[in-house]
Design a binder for these strands. Sequence first.
DNA 1: AATTGCATCGTACAGTGTACGATGTCAACT
DNA 2: AGTTGACATCGTACACTGTACGATGCAATT
Lengths: 231, 231
Amino acid sequence: MAGKRSGTQSKRPQRKSASLQSGQEPRSEPLLSLERIVATAIELLDAEGIDGLKMRRLADRLGSGAMSLYWHVGNKEEVFDLALDSVLEYRGLPEIVASQDWRGQVVHMLEDWRAVMLRHPWSASLLPRRALGPNILSRLELMSKTLSRAGVADADLNVAIWSLWNYVIGATTTRASFDLSDEDRAAGQQRLTRLSERYPTIERSRLLLDSDWDGVFRKGLDFLLDGLAPR
Amino acid sequence: MAGKRSGTQSKRPQRKSASLQSGQEPRSEPLLSLERIVATAIELLDAEGIDGLKMRRLADRLGSGAMSLYWHVGNKEEVFDLALDSVLEYRGLPEIVASQDWRGQVVHMLEDWRAVMLRHPWSASLLPRRALGPNILSRLELMSKTLSRAGVADADLNVAIWSLWNYVIGATTTRASFDLSDEDRAAGQQRLTRLSERYPTIERSRLLLDSDWDGVFRKGLDFLLDGLAPR
DNA sequence: AATTGCATCGTACAGTGTACGATGTCAACT
DNA sequence: AGTTGACATCGTACACTGTACGATGCAATT
């Protein structure tokens, strides 16, 4: 086995989860905290992409030494996990959740999801290979509840959820991978037109060039929902 | 700009594409060749995962020095690109392609796609962040052609293709991320049951535990196809 | 024999994540 | 007041990574 991933609990000092019961402030500004680390990591990821996140650079932005981070965090992978889950927190709109239009709710939840991941393109390519954090699970839970209340039978529930999940994940990761730099984009287009005679159908429909991503997402989602629960 | 990605053509020596017209054997066994490098890289990826592919280890397996690889390959990223595209080559079954059952064809192509990516789990997490190679484009082209022949209007073609693509990508990446080591699996399950009171619906449907992945994939795909082209 | 292009390799370097221990800080207890 | 000990920060060091650069061998051609 080559597995070297550490479990959920490490034997590191690792910092206790919040104060036990001595409910007093940590005096003034902690200088370093999990929240600040994660927030700054997200900034850095947004600005520099997935390969731009280095522990030293993160520490620089925080005005601390590199090794100081390891008091709050077990390793770099944990930073990725926390950043990903943090970004995916669902700030649900109560008025929509309270409505009876379950289809509208589902569409809203999924479009919100997609919007978040497109705002932070690194999250799309990270999601497939990281564990499920609490915010991700919350989104799944909320979706389950909505579908269940909408009358989807328990037997079909898992199929419905996974289908929608798959669709969103696929759509965002694909979309994110097309959000490359202009340089890459130009190179890709050049390569494609050079090979256009080998892919005539794709070329004709201009599949890769001018797809209306938002519209395509919405229409495909409608098709999927039609299949899941014909109206 | 932090972009350091190289374009399609590098100014490296890089090896000419096949022999020009002096059609003679390169004497005996080339010891090193693009094909052998890619094949060995796939072996290594299968065995050690995405982080297990190091240039030195790859060279060891090939019985060569590390730097020798760079004659055939521009950089490590190119190895990923080649391995990914190589694995995704479609060995279509003519009898199925020739049939008139377009829905069967589509299902077959997508299940084959999924099977390939589950056989090489690293490919699932790689696909979202790499460029589209010729084999991937071929698969898209074949799908386009099939759907087009099936009577899907040009206006709906892109929606249909992207929806199916999204579904497959999402399903395989999700599935692959659940194919962790037993250790991780145990830790995840433990964490989930510990938090089960916060996710009652998920817990009840056992969404994360005993989903029948193959069945779910097939059923969801049927739903999607129903929506795309009601029978 | 000399040249030329192909292919391989050894060495070296600039980064990377992080192990380890030293050091500072502050609240609580004696 | 003095001591302790948990919390938090940091400097240094190391193993390991991708790969730039130049030396070296080798076959075919001149």
